[in-house]
Design a protein around this nucleic acid. Structure first.
Lengths: 243, 243
DNA sequence: CCTTACTGTGTCCGGTAGACACATTAAAGT
DNA sequence: ACTTTAATGTGTCTACCGGACACAGTAAGG
């Protein structure tokens, strides 16, 4: 499995020339997932796009799980090159780049959840995120946690704002808003704060990405300033509300 | 569909007495999902736990999607009652309560993604989260965005730390750490910051929940203080890095 | 030239969600 | 009390899915 993600094309020896390559299989899968969603990707369907039958795919890939992992790493691609910037701006553009990737391939939100083997591109994204934080004085663990919280936010905003192609069980943002409004007309007394918040939130959609990002960066900034003031990492200024 | 989530038991008229109720179906599904994961939940399997056949379930539920929605809202349950607290402590305990729910029913992380119809319990969680922020001077939209970023963080931490029962395609945290270390032994030069961060992060696992939570709360606190200073919401003090 | 490793194919299995026709049940209307 | 009618549960059927496995053909190495 690690070989699939990290190894190049396998050394060929005897036997018939393969009619297809792993890269072609992955490309076909990515095309289907982009156009019709991850649920539309089946071994049958992929084979239909290639000059082979379903079972031939298993000569190149141990199973669907592994294939999706390869597809995911390829579709994610490496992070775009960016000039060196102060950590905050660097992490900010990193987050926007990540968001871009998820909107280009919404199915990545489904295929890259949970603990799994990481591919070279995914690791490269992580590397770039950590690079942004390298000079901040945060410990390694804190750096990991920091890019994790940024990634979480980006993922969930993308999850919420993206429309999934072919995903039958998905409402549009309007349908959701509408059904919520309908419920609140009859149940307003059970949800007073929700009702109130809805009234003062009209027209302020799609601000979620920047809003959360700025809060997180503000919070990180506070910590970084403390770390710079006390480089050995001892916590000197207890902050109200911190455990 | 809305009736399934929000309506009580349907008014019965003619016909045979139903052998099962929606609540019983949902309870059976929840039991299976808790024990063996969401993937183990099938109509066949649920029917096996009840004195009916698979197709009888479709008399009570339009499809599996809707059934999982009902299961999810029931399993999530209402948020626990908490005494009134300052907004930061209130939101903090709210987040920990949410985390608790996700660890009790890990499959909720799979079943409550994306845009979907919201059930009464899910809305009650939202109501409580907004209630915590009611006195902060944030606009409705900002309140929504704030609880969204907290929820995202809690979800992703739970996703990362929870072990899913029966989920064959899931590595343990050790396996993942191990494979990462193995890769870095041969590819260390491609990922210098990653390698460095790994060295200084030994033993600092499972701090991610509190770390991200405190950063987010710190960031929100900054905004709230600005809002209190200028109650009409006009941004008077431009903060470095904010767009 | 023959052996051997490798590729692609067809068949088969157990599983999934759901459509649909059918018999049965029990309440409502007469 | 009898008939009508709406609702319930069942069994059968279709169209998929991932994958195991045996088999035939191909091309390179000895």
């Amino acid at each position: 499995m690690t070989e699939l993600l990290w190894g190049g094309p396998p050394a060929r020896s005897r036997g018939p020339k393969p009619a297809i390559t792993l890269a072609e299989i992955a490309a076909a899968g990515i095309a289907i997932a982009d156009a019709e969603g991850l649920d539309a990707v089946s071994m049958q369907r992929i084979a239909g796009e290639l000059p082979v039958t379903k079972m031939a795919l298993y000569r190149h890939v141990p199973g669907k799980t592994e294939l999706v992992a390869v597809m995911s790493d390829i579709a994610m691609g490496p992070p775009p090159e960016r000039p060196d910037l102060p950590w905050r701006k660097a992490l900010h553009t990193w987050a926007l780049d990540l968001y871009d990737g998820f909107t280009r391939h919404p199915w990545l939100l489904q295929s890259t959840i949970g603990r799994r083997l990481l591919g070279p591109n995914e690791l490269l994204w992580m590397e770039r995120g950590l690079a942004a934080l390298a000079g901040t004085g945060l410990t390694g663990g804190e750096q990991f946690d920091a890019i994790l919280v940024v990634t979480s936010h980006v993922r969930n905003i993308a999850q919420q704002s993206t429309t999934f192609p072919g995903h039958t069980t998905g409402l549009t943002a309007e349908e959701m808003q509408q059904s919520l409004a309908a419920i609140l007309t009859t149940e307003a007394d059970r949800f007073p704060h929700l009702t109130a918040a809805m009234r003062t939130s009209a027209g302020s959609e799609n601000q979620g990405l920047e809003f959360g990002l700025q809060r997180i960066l503000d919070g990180l900034d506070l910590l970084v300033r403390r770390r710079v003031a006390v480089p050995d990492g001892v916590e000197t200024f207890p902050i109200e509300g911190r455990r």
